[in-house]
């Protein structure tokens, strides 16, 4: 379990994350939602040790993040950031094989390659595994990066806006994959997401942030309701029940 306790992060004088406490349940999808600049990405980066937090503690499986060895932690937690511009030219397979670095330190064993193959099949990338990343569409690229994270074989998978710049079809594809990761492989997925309908449809828990603070957190259906959303986004968002799913009609 990941426990975040009284976490704060300042950039110069500006407090971006302010006294945040969250517990993240194992084996579930937790979505961080909230307006731009709410501190969602910063929180996610702190949990994945990409940035150092100032105050508070982050416990990952009962051990503070700073006392984890970097290499050990990379077998436990994986993060995928929203912009993935590479300076090197790699094929899909080469990229995915980098996911094994924490285990292999660059010399991949038979077992490592098996894991790479598993990740490629999980993301259905085998037909394009020898193509270069810069020749692929945005959706294919994103799938390749997720495959790398899967090859890393961590308990926790953190994603910062994985649907950024993707069309509906690819967004749904990615979200379904995340759901399968949780349901079939027992992973814990934490993601920052802007489209609250995707959050509503696919996540188990929602944490809502605003101005660096947590406004609401809880099971998805407790957060996706008019009162909470008003508080989070300062907008009146009507919610329609379609079959079992709550849809937020935020366009008007």
């Amino acid at each position: 379990m990941i426990k975040i306790k009284n976490l704060s992060k300042k950039y110069n004088e500006k407090t971006v994350v302010n006294n945040v406490s969250v517990n993240i349940k194992k084996g579930k999808i937790t979505s961080f939602i909230g307006p731009n600049g709410a501190g969602k990405s910063t929180l996610l980066s702190a949990v994945s040790r990409l940035i150092k937090h100032d105050i508070g503690e982050i416990m990952i499986d009962k051990k503070e993040i700073k006392s984890w060895k970097s290499n050990e932690l990379s077998k436990k937690v994986a993060i995928l950031k929203q912009s993935n511009n590479l300076n090197v030219r790699l094929t899909v397979r080469e990229l995915v094989s980098f996911g094994r670095f924490p285990y292999s330190q660059g010399n991949l064993s038979e077992h490592d390659w098996e894991k790479v193959d598993e990740a490629l099949s999980f993301m259905e990338l085998h037909d394009i595994e020898d193509q270069y990343l810069d020749e692929l569409s945005g959706g294919q690229r994103q799938r390749a990066f997720i495959a790398m994270v899967i090859a890393q074989d961590t308990e926790y998978i953190l994603l910062d806006e994985p649907l950024n710049n993707l069309d509906m079809k690819h967004s749904v594809q990615i979200m379904k994959v995340l759901r399968r990761l949780v349901d079939e492989l027992g992973k814990t997925v934490i993601l920052v997401i802007h489209d609250i309908n995707f959050a509503s449809f696919y996540s188990d828990y929602v944490v809502a942030l605003k101005n660096g603070k947590i406004v609401r957190q809880g099971p998805t259906n407790e957060i996706i309701e008019q009162g909470s959303l008003k508080e989070i986004y300062d907008m009146d968002i009507p919610i329609k029940q379609i079959d079992k799913c709550r849809v937020c009609v935020y366009f008007a």
Partner: peptide, 10 residues
């Protein structure tokens, strides 16, 4: 691969 990916990979 860049700073973030490198840190992610330990």
């Amino acid at each position: 691969l860049g700073k973030d990916t490198a840190i992610n990979l330990g």
